[in-house]
Design a protein around this nucleic acid. Structure first.
Length: 602
RNA sequence: GCGUCCGUAGCUCAGCUGGAUAGAGCGUCGGACUUCGAAUCCGCAGGUCGCAGGUUCGAAUCCUGCCGGACGCGCCA
């Protein structure tokens, strides 16, 4: 049984207040909550909104409600203050309940059955197999993976899906470059990860193409626009690439062989990157097998009058149906399908396969418009999908000196980034533990470095476009994974030293009445609500904040010598030991939700 | 032109389904290791919440209009 103890306590105290309000003819509206103002007790409620219903001053209502609240056994003080009802709870009783709950209940680990019976598909990552993954993919992978974990923790059956973009003109560019400059090189012979090797050829293509275009312009060529030049017959490389795509579609054996070879390299590289990030999938789709889906839906939509033929023969959808402007083509005038057609087919096929209650696409906010259109068309075609489709849109990651641009070499490569984080953690670790063997040091550095990346990227709300500072990202101070891991390790250390010294003593919970232990208890009580909100709003940053909040409250508790566990008199020792054990358990659970491995020592 | 997102401390960001004195981290400055691990803690300084109106007992939060930034608006993906 997984419960949210805080919510339970609030409900219990709220009930008689609501009953009183109803009995006096007012609709109960606002729940008790944590007061925003320090020193206002444990729970508070603004009574101003009832003033109209009662035709009475908020101050008077607060006085009446205070009398009702004071009846509750957990409430030791109910004070009306300027129209607010402030409640102080029995600290020892709350502490005893909180610690028992934190040690035994899965709710304290953020688990619940709130989404029991729901099936949710989460699609994330969706890389192209023409170059290695970069910082933007890191945000996507970690965001998608964590959202999936949160939904799972709160009861949903989750299917993690990756749709690999393994076909198309950009893939052919790497292949053309390999054909020209490859000379039989392989990841093994080059000693390079496969995705990086393929990426090298993609860059090589761009370089060769730009040289070709420059020479063309110098010789008096008229087409200045690069894309237009690429698509013209004047560009030999453009022509070769386009012809290769056609050959691929026709199943040309030689082209298919090269394609399989290079895609295999790339996917093997991705697998390593995913494994290191702790990102996994239940199902991997490839566009090479899905790109023709959706054509039957176009026929269906035409019969239903959802699509119609535009002037030049293309099949289009009228976007004014969904409050947007213009038309969206689902078939070109030559009868071939577009990206959206494929997405339509994929969504319908997945619904047939999984009967999902919800499908979440984790994709950058530059595709907001695309998803509005896609969902609008899907809901017109399949009314039963209404309300099930969600685009988890996230902002771009910028660098201190602007955006990431592959052409300008300002891309932060995912593998390099993880190496850098690992190295920074290892360097700090080497100073701390001069005698630790290399293997153990590497394991800790990996946990701290990769955990740091996850925490850093998750700590921003998804829609924010934020600035990634490589220097700060490897910082182990502040609102970081390392900070939370350190709190966990210190709690572990206390308990190791304590052994069983507190066994058999009755905890004296009044020893937890001080400001610092109470702050730890408050952070514990807040945690499940934050996890639920994070799952509901698809916002893992709520979990990183709540985790840091618990670690921070514990650090403050820990650093005050009044709160020593070891050497305290038995009742206080037992109570504080219980607090440390509960903190450790909850921090471990919180880090697990974030995909971060706790360390017993660091 | 239209649409979406964003604008809060020197920097990076929380808070936004309206509530009391707007928060955190970093950075600056000053303190705390003979006491459970200093990758820690404590303290000081730092804000007309982009601007102007409106709604409300009450607005960083809701509405309108401006200003500034990002991204979109394809028979690309």
């Amino acid at each position: 049984m997984a419960t949210d103890l805080f919510a339970e306590i609030v409900r219990d105290i709220q009930a008689p207040l609501d009953a009183w309000l109803s009995a006096h003819g007012a609709e109960p509206q606002q729940a008790l909550g944590r007061p925003t103002r320090a020193g206002s007790g444990d729970l508070a409620m603004a009574c101003h909104r009832y003033a109209r219903a009662f035709k009475k001053a908020p101050q008077m209502i607060a006085v009446d409600l205070a009398k009702v609240a004071a009846e509750h056994p957990l409430v030791v003080e109910a004070t009306p203050v300027a129209g607010f009802l402030n409640l102080r709870l029995d600290g020892a009783a709350v502490a005893a309940r909180t610690l028992a709950w934190a040690m035994a209940d899965d709710g304290a680990l953020g688990r619940s059955d709130a989404r029991a019976g729901q099936t949710v598909l989460v699609e994330y990552s969706s890389p192209n197999t023409n170059k290695p993954q970069h910082l933007g993919h890191c945000r996507n992978n970690i965001l998608g993976s964590t959202v999936a974990t949160l939904l799972e923790a709160t009861g949903a059956r989750v299917v993690r899906v990756n749709l690999i973009n393994d076909r198309g003109i950009h893939i052919c560019k790497s292949m053309v470059a390999y054909r020209h400059f490859g000379d039989g090189v392989t990841p093994e012979s080059a000693g390079e990860k496969g995705d990086h090797l393929v990426g090298d050829f993609y860059v090589r293509f761009d370089k060769a193409f730009r040289a070709e275009h420059a020479a063309y312009l110098k010789a008096g060529g008229a087409i200045e626009d690069k894309d237009a030049y690429f698509n013209s017959d004047d560009s030999a490389l453009g022509r070769e690439t386009r012809e290769m795509l056609q050959a691929w579609e026709q199943g040309d054996p030689e082209v298919r062989t090269l394609w399989s070879l290079m895609n295999g390299w790339c996917e093997a590289g991705f697998a390593q990157t995913y494994a290191r990030m702790g990102v996994r999938f239940d199902q991997i789709y490839k566009e090479s097998t899905t790109y023709l889906l959706g054509k039957d839906l176009v026929d269906e939509g035409r019969e239903k009058g959802i699509f119609y033929a535009a002037g030049n023969g293309a099949m289009v959808f009228d976007l004014s149906r969904i409050g947007l402007e213009g038309e969206k083509a689902v078939l070109r005038s030559d009868g071939t399908s577009v990206y959206t057609t494929q997405d339509l087919g994929t969504a319908v096929a997945r619904h047939a396969e999984h009967a999902f209650d919800r499908m979440i696409y984790v994709v950058g906010n530059e595709q907001d418009h695309h998803f509005k259109v896609l969902f609008g068309i899907l809901e017109a075609l399949r009314p039963e999908l209404q309300g099930t489709l969600h685009h988890l849109s996230y902002g771009m990651v910028e660098l201190p000196h602007g955006k990431m641009k592959s052409r300008e070499g300002t891309v932060v490569d995912a593998d390099d980034l993880m190496d850098g984080l690992h190295a920074a953690a290892a360097e700090a670790g080497r100073e701390r533990w001069p005698d630790l063997d290399d293997g153990a040091l590497a394991a800790r550095a990996e946990a701290i470095g990769i955990g740091g990346l996850k925490f850093y990227l998750l700590n921003y709300a998804p829609q924010t476009t934020f600035t990634f500072d490589p220097e700060k990202s490897i910082d182990l101070k502040g609102e970081t994974a390392a900070y939370c891991l350190y709190a966990y390790a210190r709690a572990t250390s206390i308990l190791r030293k304590l052994g069983e010294a507190d066994v058999g003593f009755e905890p004296d919970y009044t020893a937890l009445g001080g400001e610092q232990p109470r702050a730890v208890l408050d952070a514990m009580l807040a945690f499940p609500g934050e996890v639920e909100a994070a799952a509901r709003e698809l916002k893992p940053s709520l979990v990183t904040k709540a985790t840091h909040g618990l670690a921070s409250a514990f650090a403050t508790f820990y650093n005050n010598s009044d709160n020593r566990v070891l050497g305290a008199e038995p009742g206080a020792m037992a109570a504080r030991a219980a607090l440390v054990r509960a903190t450790r358990r909850m921090l471990g659970g919180a880090l697990a939700l974030l995909g971060i491995t706790p360390l017993e020592e660091m």
